[in-house]
Amino acid sequence: MPTSGFLHQQASHCESGVMSAILRHYGLPLSEPMAFGLSSALAFAYLPFIKLSGLPLVSYRMPPKAILRGLQKPLGFAMHTETFRAPEKGAARLNALLDAGQVVGLQASVFWLPFIPPDFRFHFNAHNLLAYGRDATDGDYLISDPVLEAAVRCPAADLTKARFARGVLAPKGLLYYPANPPREPDWKSVLPAALKKTTRIMLHTPLPFIGVRGMRWLARAIERLPAATDAQATKLYIGHLVRMQEEIGTGGGGFRFMYAAFLEEAALLAQRPTLAELAAELADIGDHWREFALAAARMIRDRDPLDPARLAQQLREQATREQTFFVALAKAARG
């Protein structure tokens, strides 16, 4: 049974975890926070016109595949990607790659993966995981899902179903692996470029629902929730925010802690001590996101009165903090 000498390692987020593991396997040890930060994956987006079960899409990072794509340029490699129309072809191609000893990144729907705890199995199509082998006798795949503690096995029919789920962000059987080995970059040039891109997204996107402006826009929407007339809907809405922030594999605090870890690493690699100070500031901001989550959860369970205005206020304070932070980060990136 070929396992390609692959070692499972737990991460906090699926896409950055997969990229960290796949790059390590193909010769470049790169931490999860570095994969996340170097691809400028941190963001904030409030997209009220995209609904998930009737609730607006709120995200604390760039869209799926941003990390996969964003690492190619700084690390000087190309990610080979394939999608398929027919599930049989997608399964056959994956088998051929695994039999040749490749470690392959996959996109799949969380809902159809039997090894994910039942309470987490919602129809989220942009989950990422790695396949590193196949059992020749029963056809089970050997899977490394970065959000799990250990590697798992998955029956072939289940994995194929998950890879070809339909709907928003349908994976279409996406599989990927590096076409050439990644190489260690010149940190002093790639890191400032990555930082600059993130500060631009957070501060200067010309759309009112992205970055710190998006937080303020969301604060206004929270204020308008019908707490008095429809407590149930209000609670579902704020619970949804907390799930997007904490539950969807963000490493806590809507990716802010992970990005802070990236800044610490960047401070050493680019020899910019200011970045380590900024890392501490961002970790504090992450703590405030956790407080926001706690306040919302207490309201959901009626331990505190349901008061959307208070949450909106907390969110506006976060917007102010992040604005100050990203202005300072932009300055530090310029050197």
């Binding site: 737990q10 926070p33 619970g239 949804h240 799930r243 904490e246 490493g251 806590g252 802070a260 369970r301």
Partner: peptide
């Protein structure tokens, strides 16, 4: 796994057995 300040003073991965806040919203 979540990121927190570990004993060596740097931010790194720490295993968490669970947070009630997450249980509530899930």
């Amino acid at each position: 796994s979540i990121y927190a300040r570990t004993t060596n003073g740097r931010l790194g991965l720490v295993a968490s057995s669970g947070w009630e806040v997450e249980e509530i919203v899930t």
